[in-house]
Amino acid sequence: MNRPTHAKAAAPAIELRDVSKEYKDVRALDGVSLSLAGNRIYGLLGRNGAGKTTLMSVLTGQGFHSSGEVAVLGGNPYENDRVLSRICFIRESQKYPEDFTPLQAFRAAALFFEHWNADYALQLAKEFQLPLKRRIKKLSRGQLSAVGVVIGLASRAEVTFFDEPYLGLDAVARQIFYDRLLEDFAAHPRTIILSSHLIDEVANLLEHVILIDRGRIVLDDDAESIRGSAVTVAGAASKVEPFVAGRTVLHRETLGSLASVTVEAVLTDAERRQAADLGLEIAPVSLQQLVVRKTLAAAEEDSATAAATVMEVSR
């Protein structure tokens, strides 16, 4: 892929500075700062209720934020047509007028999206075996998701958000989505934000990963740097513990005299040999495993801080 090198591409596509959002007594976003360069595929990962959808709503001008600054393609998206006409947001349960057919939904999209490609939409609809003239209300859940995926891809918007776009899509349809996304992204580079629970499925598509947990950014790094950034060391506890001493522990399991400890570490060849000599096993950690460990570690840290606060208050 050739990245455009002209100056325009250098400005971040999305920028958030210390953005928070409160619903009554819940902090949905808590001091989020991000700077996302254009023409990349980002994975927005996190548990249910972590703040992914809230973040995307703020970025697409569909919700207010309580404090902080938001810029998408250089402007505040809220009620800003100059920005909104260049972004596309496909929600998990996207609503369309019930009496529309997919074909009518596509025609409506054509009016809205500057770079809409009608031929491409029809080609995709065919691949997803979407009945073009059936009313939306008669479509299955998977077919409804396919309508969203087709609109998201064919819009060719400068910034496209897919929020868990595949409810009801079977494995074959999801694979078609991933393949077409990669292919069309290569031909028409643009910024894609893909929110997903199916981390193993999408991991290889992503260039950059953002992990959010309870409104806070836990991880913001290139997927390639994350891969191989942690290892699991297993063996006799008496040998594992000295080996992992001083490293950030993400997870620890013990069974009798055996221990298995996941640490953040890129081991050198010398360290790997040392581990082998000690009879330790070194196992790689996948992106999905790492995301799970990071999320749980963040939660643990939080409850530890909370406990410390409680203790201080009660003192």
Binding site: M1, R3, D179, L182, E183, A186, A187, E207, A223
Partner: peptide, 16 residues
């Protein structure tokens, strides 16, 4: 790189 990306189903920037 785009052919590699499509074949291995990976991000084109990674292939590059």
């Amino acid at each position: 790189t785009n052919e590699f990306a499509a074949f291995y189903r990976i991000n084109p920037a990674t292939a590059a």
